[in-house]
Write a protein that binds this DNA or RNA. Structure first.
Length: 444
RNA sequence: GCGAGCGUAGCUCAGUUGGUAGAGCAUCACGUUGCCAACGUGAUUGUCGCCGGUUCGAUUCCGGUCGCUCGCUCCA
């Protein structure tokens, strides 16, 4: 119980910090907000882009057999018929206000009576579909209805042949995409964890059916290594959930779950989807999406291994892991307690990687020169306002790993003090060596 | 979608038994200091979530609505 209370407390501290420092705040807040939508502020967008860049580099730029794609959010409506998104969850449902049960109206013996408790206190039958609707063209009728994509992977399947032909890729190869997806979630919850507009980072890897399990294991390991090595996740923070109940088309599936303040939650899925998606799109489009192997003369439907992660969830996972409160010693007199809020973010994703802080306003000119140089290579920030200690704390709160203090000796010895966020230790580094020094510490 | 709780400054919250509001922190300026939330002086900030009703008068009472949190439900 005490643990749960602490965690709920942690969640509200994170939400509060996000609002205060401009990481994330509610969309349309001056109008009272809109449920399930969140805006990323100045620091938030820096960090979000850094995470995306890290993923893209890992999944696309360092691999010859993975190609990128940026498809539209609105697709031909039949895409969602083929994928099964339109048929499922488009049933009429009713809720019993007395016993809180929910029923499909077409399955009730008597649609006016609760099947469970016999009560008559039912809500009006409503259509449940998690896809967001819109209209293409100025006429709002069924003919012109379209949907915002519920996941970024379907357009990858749809464009599979075009990508294959254009890039002359042979199996096995993958297609990756980062982009917005939309779901009319019944109940958005837990800050940005479940929202109605979100960003996915997905990769579909196409291979021969016989090699499917082998690639499934490969990508599972790759993704786990990414969290361990690139984001520093440890075994107490994430775990693997193996699906026992699989979708009818799937051969294997795991989720990578993370310890959020509200409990364990899915961060990424690695799924063996078999031939299902390409077969469906082949069937509905009438196009032959089979792969022809020139060496063996075989024609077959590729098997798909998917890695799918929510960017917003990775963002929230990083914040959950990074948030910490120190009770560090203070050097100032007259302070009983010094609680320091610090985000121990990996330097690669920190919104500000380097802060340049002149000890005095009199040092403005030269310190500003240093800042302008470093800002070409690192996400940097300059701050002269307030005492040096206060500025360190401001940077701690947004997770800046390195603060460079430009002091009265800097102009003569051509060096600055580098103060490290987590240890608060300081080191004197010559200005000409700063770039190499920081690049080595920050990494990609 | 159902139920419960909540909504006052950027953040955390106090307050008004109905007479349009305060604190701490934060922010800004000047002075001072010069490596871990220093100090002094001064300054900025709210349609008390939104709409409506009752009332001479509503931030306060009532209704609705929007949003947040928790539980149930849902999560293809």
């Amino acid at each position: 119980m005490a643990d749960e209370a602490t965690n709920a407390d942690l969640m509200s501290k994170i939400v509060s910090l996000c609002k205060r420092r401009g990481f994330i705040f509610p969309s349309s807040e001056i109008y009272g907000g809109i449920n399930g939508f969140w805006d990323y502020g100045p620091y938030g967008v820096r960090m979000k882009r850094a995470i995306e860049k890290l993923w893209w580099h890992e999944m696309v730029e360092t691999r010859d057999n993975v190609e990128g794609l940026d498809s539209t959010i609105i697709c031909h409506p039949t895409v969602w018929k083929a994928s099964g998104h339109l048929d499922q969850f488009s049933d009429l449902m009713t809720d019993c206000r007395d016993c809180k049960s929910r029923f499909r109206v077409d399955q009730m013996p008597d649609p006016t009576t609760c099947t469970n408790c016999g009560g008559k206190n039912l809500t009006e039958p409503r259509e449940f579909n998690l896809m967001m609707k819109t209209f293409v063209g100025p006429v709002f009728d069924d003919e012109h209805m379209a949907y915002l994509r519920a996941e970024t992977c379907q357009p990858i399947f749809v464009d599979f042949n075009s990508v294959r032909v254009a890039t002359r890729q042979k199996l096995p190869f993958g297609i990756a995409q980062v982009g917005k997806a939309f779901r009319n979630e019944i109940n958005p919850r837990n800050f940005t964890f479940r929202s109605r507009e979100f960003t996915q980072m997905e990769m579909e890897f196409f291979c021969r059916g016989a090699e499917g399990m082998q690639w499934f294991e490969y990508w599972k390991e790759q993704r786990i290594n990414f969290y361990r090595k690139k984001l520093g996740f440890t075994d107490d923070f994430f775990r693997i959930y193996v699906h026992e109940k699989l979708a009818h088309y799937a051969k294997a599936a795991i989720d990578i779950e993370v310890k959020f303040p509200f409990g364990w939650g899915e961060l990424e899925g690695v799924h063996h989807r078999g031939e299902w998606d390409l077969s469906q799109h082949g069937k509905y489009s009438g196009q032959d999406l089979q792969y022809f192997d020139h060496d063996t003369g075989e024609r077959f439907m590729p098997t798909v291994i998917e890695t799918s992660v929510g960017l917003d969830r990775m963002f929230l996972a990083l914040l959950s892991r990074a948030y910490d409160e120190d009770t560090a010693d203070t050097c100032k007199e007259g302070q009983d307690q010094d609680v320091r809020v610090v985000l121990r973010l990996p330097a690669t994703v920190a919104p500000v990687q380097v802060a340049v802080l002149p000890l005095s306003k009199k040092l403005n000119e030269h310190a500003m020169n240093l800042y302008n140089k470093l800002n070409n290579y690192f996400r940097s920030e300059y701050d002269v306002t307030g005492s040096i200690g206060k500025r360190y704390r401001r940077q701690d709160e947004i997770g800046t790993p390195f603060c460079l203090t430009f002091d009265f000796e800097s102009e003569t010895d051509n060096a600055v003090t580098v103060r490290e966020r987590d240890s608060m230790k300081q080191e004197r580094v010559a200005i000409p060596e700063l770039r190499d020094y920081l690049e080595e510490k920050i990494g990609f």
